[in-house]
Write a protein that binds this DNA or RNA. Structure first.
Lengths: 217, 217
DNA sequence: CGATTTTTGAGACGCGAGTATCATATTGGT
DNA sequence: ACCAATATGATACTCGCGTCTCAAAAATCG
């Protein structure tokens, strides 16, 4: 068993033993509740998992930690994405095709994460922007998918494209399109994918124009 | 004074008298606190406005109602926007130029509104999508700005464009670009504006292609 | 098996949000 | 100036989240 002299401090996960077992039980239970549309508190997960509140709070000090764990699980397959072609537009389309259905499936989970990150932001007095949840993964995934354009676009244009794409690559998408436009999951994903491809084409077209303009001089 | 036989029920706003005065004081105070980066509770506003908690709760039954009122104030100038040209891309650029600085200025307010709408969504069990806060205004503003394209695009293409634009026309923009890309307000607005114009051009180009293709047959 | 350490459960506690009640102050009409 | 209606303030209360403490249960090891 792992070393641990203090009694209530966080331990490194042993990956085996009763601690790992209980933790997994809680994450599974929380994930199930969330896919049912709820955003359960630690107490609620405790009850559903049939452990005492005190035990539950030993593993997850608050709702944020719990949601964070569920998000990591939900995110798994998306982070494994790897582009197969060198066509940037195709790569972006691939990425969106893979990620958006998964995000839609775990919509409640990701919305909860977004909500909690906003709460945190509000409490910190709108300063000290620290890495939030999984949001940083967007940058990696998108810059990865756009990698073929690294040479063709200026650094500024590349960043701007990645930044614009990150606006339409997340739960916010479903928040807006489903809640205020009354679209369904598939329609929402279609809109986002169209916009993403259009932005990639636009960035490439601008780069081409710049090149020919320079060539004329 | 207005009729009101029950003692604690909501009254129609008289627009004058002590009720209007106290209400305005609270909204002003809340707005000031929010621009300072806080998301004050009803109790906190009560203290800052130097009225008792009980009185404050008589005007705003909860934080949601309070934020709603502040959002309405902050939104004022944006809703007055009217396009001056018939060039759709120019109209969109205008709208973004007018709206984004204001949204940035009231960032904490709009983020609080977003947060509260997510809370509401979570509590309702992810069903029964009712009109949320001010989000519906996006549709009106964007379809208004895109009005010149009504004839040139198919209805489906028009809707898709408006939907895509609504993804990059809101606080979510700053949430993503400032918090995870570390941009500032101006840079964020620039990215959004570029993306918006690119999407409008893309939609128009697609329409043109479709027309010429049909003309060939 | 027996002793030590770790995990768990039960309950008490503090805190902040929102509600309810009652007494006091203020306003408006006559 | 007086009275009734209304606005306000102080306080107590419920409720859910998160913390803390202590004793019982369970796992580990000699």
């Amino acid at each position: 068993m792992n070393v641990s002299s203090q009694s209530t401090g966080p331990r490194p996960k042993p990956a085996t033993g009763p601690r790992a077992r209980t933790r997994k039980l809680m994450v599974t239970t929380a994930s199930r509740l969330m896919q049912a549309g709820l955003t359960p508190s630690v107490s609620e997960v405790a009850e559903a998992a049939e452990v005492s509140r005190a035990t539950a709070y030993r593993y997850f000090p608050n709702q944020t930690a719990l949601v964070h764990a569920v998000v990591e699980e939900a995110l798994g397959p998306i982070l494994k994405w790897k582009g197969r072609t060198q066509d940037a537009e195709q790569r972006i389309a691939d990425l969106f095709d893979k990620a958006l259905p998964r995000i839609a499936e775990f919509e409640a989970t990701f919305k909860a994460a977004l909500r909690l990150s906003l709460e945190q932001w509000a409490q910190e007095g709108a300063a000290a922007t620290q890495p939030r949840f999984t949001r940083g993964h967007r940058i990696d995934l998108l810059t990865d998918a756009l990698a073929p354009l690294r040479g063709r676009l200026t650094d500024a244009a590349f960043d701007r494209l990645a930044q614009a794409l990150s606006l339409i690559f997340g739960v916010e998408l479903f928040t807006v399109l489903k809640d205020i436009w009354n679209l369904d999951d598939t329609q929402s994903a279609g809109v986002a994918k169209w916009a993403a491809c259009a932005l990639v084409r636009a960035a490439m077209a601008e780069a081409d124009n710049r090149e020919t303009a320079e060539a004329r001089t």
